[in-house]
Design a protein around this nucleic acid. Structure first.
Lengths: 123, 123
DNA sequence: CAATCCTCTGAACAGGTGTTCAGTGGTAAC
DNA sequence: GTTACCACTGAACACCTGTTCAGAGGATTG
């Protein structure tokens, strides 16, 4: 995990010979490790079919954990674990009401994201 | 939302009692396992910082494997393995030219996707 | 307060993921 | 043909992920 911003030696290449000009041109535009990490964690939250099912259920309406579990046919514990992941990426909101905790979609970014991806996959 | 006397349930619920009406309403809209799987695989391809770096490099210009390796500071073998993943989701194109194989971004869906996510993360 | 319900948590285990290493195939240069 | 280079592949290994199981915390009901 080292930063890529050092101008002195931008290539530290003991590697084989490559197209130096191309590499030097592209390298400063490469996503920083930090940003790449954050973005990867976000996509990672969406990279599980069960979590996607949960989101698609929440896209319909707010639901509590046990309803979610029934809707996607998972154990309640498993659902709880997965919701933790979705929460960590701010994909869902939750509010407590009595004994239940109701979850919902965090915002509409996710739906438009969904549509983008669905479009890509239909090709 | 009031509970109603449950009609014979289409939910195969040996589970605990939940809000049957909610579940029945939502369940048919839940993403099918097949679609959820495909979508998860797509997001999974984007869920690694190194792959995101590769894509950000390719967003600049077409590059061959060894240039990519130098640009993101990975081994060439590792890059090759990761490009395989990106190829499987049609995120990149490739064409052979002499001894080199040049990779590029497959289409612009990905960039707009990138921007969506970047917007979500800046909150 | 005792009992019950809903949700969350931690540990343990199976399965998946990404890297390195060694080796192969294909292309160009000599 | 031989050599060198570029890219790909498979195996092995460490690491991460998601499930289940058992149990704890919080809130409501009687």
């Amino acid at each position: 995990m080292q930063a890529v911003d050092a101008p002195s030696c931008d290539l530290s290449c003991d590697e084989s010979l490559v197209h130096l000009d191309n590499v030097r041109q592209v390298q400063p535009e490469v996503l920083s490790t930090e940003k790449a990490q954050r973005m990867a964690e976000f996509f990672s939250a969406l990279s599980d079919p069960h979590r996607l099912k949960l989101l698609s259920a929440l896209a319909q309406q707010e639901l509590c954990v046990c309803d979610l579990a029934a809707a996607v046919k998972m154990g309640e514990s498993a659902v709880s674990h997965q919701l933790r992941v979705l929460r960590s990426q701010r994909l869902v909101t939750y509010r407590r009401q009595g004994r239940n905790v109701y979850y919902g979609l965090a915002d509409d970014h996710i739906m438009s994201l969904y549509r983008e991806v669905a479009a890509h996959l239909d090709e």
